[in-house]
Structures are given as structure tokens and as C-alpha cells.
Design a protein around this nucleic acid. Structure first.
Lengths: 243, 243
DNA sequence: TACCATTAATTGTCTGACAATTAATGGTAT
DNA sequence: ATACCATTAATTGTCAGACAATTAATGGTA
């Protein structure tokens, strides 16, 4: 076990409690809650505050604390960094790895604008398609330094997902990614790999993944056939703290 | 002034302080910080905790708290609910409203699956294109009940954005939206409005906007010409609380 | 009925204390 | 000199208790 601090337990118990109550429901008073959860009021308030800034509850001095009951951000939308394989599994899509190709090349003067790694870094590029029973539905390209992952690593239980593999190894510790979203028309090369017509519309993600010390780990391009994935995102009104 | 509670001020001051320090920097100890910011340690810790769950800082018992220095989520990505007009302005794109059309229709048996409003609700549908100097770059459709907004409202300072207009009116109080992201090929109708070829790839958003009591306010479709907008999103590794 | 002071309930903040954890320090045996 | 270990200082984690500020309800009064 890693964390048995009261706060951690509190966080999950409180979240469950909030989820169980419907929108608008009133929570017990802080002294009462603290007692029933077996923590001090200060600790309870730290947890409450985190839920408040997330907008899950609303506290009013003199009245009490109420459940706002909005959709949680971290619940399966695009806000979570997860692999296509994991995502597919979660939504019940049965996928397998299709065509698979690995290249090795250094960062040169010609391609340095295309990849966010220093000059002369040796990179490894992993291309693959994701298939359902019937057809390929995505084409993914991951680019990362060989110092992080090389060809022989790929034999140890590699199932197609670089992200999953890195998460499993736990080194480097990944923390977040920055993903650009756009729409593109399939080039003839990609059209061939996905067995579609050249010029067909594809959903396109360009993504940089960072580790906990904010170092870039991988750069990747993803092309998705429209309609097969349910990418969605919860967006918040900018004004975070209102009363 | 709305909020002069110490916590609110703390939140912004602390954020500034964290932003100023580089990644890996160590913050002063809690007692010292609390004193220098003029609040109690408890209050400081509430604020710290919110930054910790956001992953901006990392605290280690016995050592101190350190700046992680990751990109803030709320800083201009897709996580913020804002209008295309506001977004365009922020990224320095000069846009104006192009073609504009309003329809009125009730929810019937035929269309009830297309809109998330109860049967027989009278809806108003606002279509418009967004233009730069040279060309149209987006086509937007908003659908909402007339009880929320009707034709005559649209004369009071309506600049094209339903979202901005509702935010300005402040009633209902908007809180968040749920947006589905996909890629589509332009229908002949939309191709005509955007002056592109039929079948060209478009970035497509389908979005529901909710108010603070979680009632749906508007349903909208947005079609964007690829390349003109920089939609991006920061994604987090699922494991929120690590140590 | 309308208005107003009182009161109970609740969140907001503060103070002071102690426990738990970590890294540094310095001593001791090899 | 080196390796190991106990001690200590610094820091975060948690707790208990108190009081202030705010709100809604209560009940009295004109």
C-alpha cells in the first residue's frame, strides 16, 4: 500500500458520498461529518475544498454544503490520458494490433522542425494500425528517443501501445500530455493503410507526452476513422470561483 | 467586490508565486509561508491541497513542497467553455459574423432523437457562419428553447455568439458543457456555406451546454475548417494522487 | 400584515499542539 | 578511511478547540 493517510481515504469516501447524493442534496455539517468519518474538521475541510474548486459541491456560510451534481471531469472523457487500446476496451470495442512497423532515425537539420527532440537524438518511430474484426479504424505513430525505449524492449509483453507499455514499466513516470485536435484528409499512404479512399475525412490528434519533471517523452500522431470512437470533453465556464 | 475571503486572495497569490518559481523549486515552509501571506496555516493548507490535487505542486513530509511546473489545464485549451468569437479574439484572429439564419420549430416525433429537449418544446435554431477577411472558416448551429432566448432578445446587442450572449445576460447561469469531437465530410449544403468542396474534411463538435443546476440549455453543432483553429487539450494520467 | 431583533445552525479562520517522515549530522566499530 | 547507526532538526500531516461571519428561522411588536 502506498498511501494510507487519512486524507486519501477521506477523498474517496467523500467522493462516494457526494456521488450517492443527488444534485442539490445537503451534506451533514462539517463537525458531524468529521466525526462520522473519523477525521478532524481541518482535514475534512481540505478535502471539501478540493471538491469545491472542482465544482462538485457548493458551500454557503450559514447554510451548509450542497451537492452540485455536475458531471465529473475525470470520468472517461478526453481529459484522461489513456491509450487507444485501453479506451477501446472501456467502451467495449474489441480491437487488435494490425500492421506494425519500426524505424530508427536521428534528428537532423531536415526533420528537426517536425519532432520536438534535440538535434542528433536517435529516435525510434513505431507505426501501427488498430483493427476491429472488420476493418482498420486508426493509424498511430509514436516517436521517442531510443534511450527511453528501444527495439528489444518491444519484445517484453508489448501489445501495441507505447503508452500502456511505458505506464506499466513506470519509468519515466508519465504525468500528462498536450494534444492538438484537427481534421485532415487522408493522404494516399494513410488511405491505403486504413483501407479508405484518399481524401476521406479523418480525426487527427497530435500529442506530446510529458513525464513528472516535465520532460517530453513521446511525440505522436493519431488518425481516427470518424464515428468509431466517442471522444468527448467536459468544458468549464472560465469563472472558477463563484459564490 | 464579490469575494474578499482570505482563501480567495490566497489562491491567486499562491498561484502567482508558484508560477513565478520554476519547476523543481522549493517553496518556503508552511509556517513561514502562512506568516508571510498573512493567513493561518490551516487556510494555507487548504489552498495548497487544491494545488496539489491539480498536480501543480508536490509535498513531501519531512522535505517540503516543490513546484512541479506542469502546464495549467485552465489556460486556453479546450477545457474552457468559451465562444468561437472569444477564442478567435484570444488567438488574434479577426472574425465577423457571416450568413445568419433563425428558425423556429417544435420538438416532434421525427426529430426528438436529434435534440435533447422534451417533446413539444418550441425551439429556436440559430445558424451562422464565422468569417475572416478572406473566407468563412466555421459554421455553427445553436438550438435552444425559446423560453431561454427568443427572436427579440437577439436584437439587444447580439454579436453572433449565443454563448457570449447568455454569459452576458447571466441567466441561466452556465456552468459547463459536454462536447463530442469528430471529423466529418462536408455535405453539399455545408460545403456551399463554407465555400469548399463537398466531401472536404471538417472538424466537428457536438456540444450540450448546462447551467448550474445541471439543466441543459443549448445543443449545438459546430463545423470548423481544418487548420484555422488551434484546439488543444491537456490530458492527465488517470492516477490522480501519487506520492 | 409588515417589520425588526434575537437566536440557532453552519461555514470561515485562527492558534497551538503533537505525530510522522526525511535528510543531514556526527559518532562508533571495523 | 569506510560503513553503519543513532540523534537531531526541519518539514508536512493531523488534531482539538475556539471564535468570527453569515444565513435562515423564530417570534415579538407596531
Amino acid at each position: 500500500m502506498q498511501n494510507e493517510q487519512p486524507f486519501q481515504r477521506l477523498q474517496v469516501e467523500l467522493e462516494r458520498m457526494i456521488a450517492k447524493k443527488g444534485a442539490g442534496a445537503k451534506l451533514p455539517s462539517e463537525p458531524a461529518l468529521a466525526k462520522s468519518l473519523g477525521v478532524s474538521r481541518s482535514t475534512l475541510r481540505e478535502a471539501m475544498r478540493t471538491f469545491e474548486v472542482q465544482g462538485l459541491i457548493r458551500r454557503r456560510q450559514g447554510q451548509g454544503t450542497f451537492v452540485v451534481g455536475k458531471q465529473k471531469t475525470f470520468e472517461g472523457g478526453l481529459e484522461v490520458l489513456e491509450s487507444i487500446e485501453t479506451l477501446s476496451e472501456r467502451i467495449g470495442l474489441n480491437v487488435s494490433m494490425g500492421e506494425f512497423d519500426i524505424k530508427r532515425f536521428p534528428v537532423s537539420e531536415e526533420n528537426r522542425n517536425l519532432v520536438p527532440f534535440p538535434l542528433k537524438t536517435t529516435l525510434i518511430q513505431i507505426e501501427r494500425t488498430i483493427n476491429t474484426e472488420e476493418r482498420p479504424i486508426a493509424y498511430l505513430v509514436d516517436i521517442l528517443p531510443v534511450t527511453i525505449l528501444d527495439e528489444k524492449d518491444l519484445q517484453n509483453g508489448f501489445d501495441g501501445s507505447v503508452l500502456d507499455w511505458l505506464l506499466k514499466r513506470g519509468d519515466p513516470v508519465l504525468s500528462q500530455s498536450n494534444t492538438r485536435i484537427d481534421s485532415v484528409e487522408a493522404s494516399s499512404e494513410i488511405a491505403h493503410k486504413l483501407q479508405i479512399q484518399r481524401g476521406a475525412a479523418l480525426l487527427f490528434f497530435e500529442s506530446d507526452v510529458y513525464d513528472t519533471s516535465n520532460q517530453i517523452v513521446t511525440h505522436s500522431y493519431s488518425y481516427f476513422l470518424p464515428g468509431y470512437f466517442d471522444f468527448h470533453i467536459v468544458r468549464q465556464v472560465a469563472k472558477k470561483y463563484f459564490k
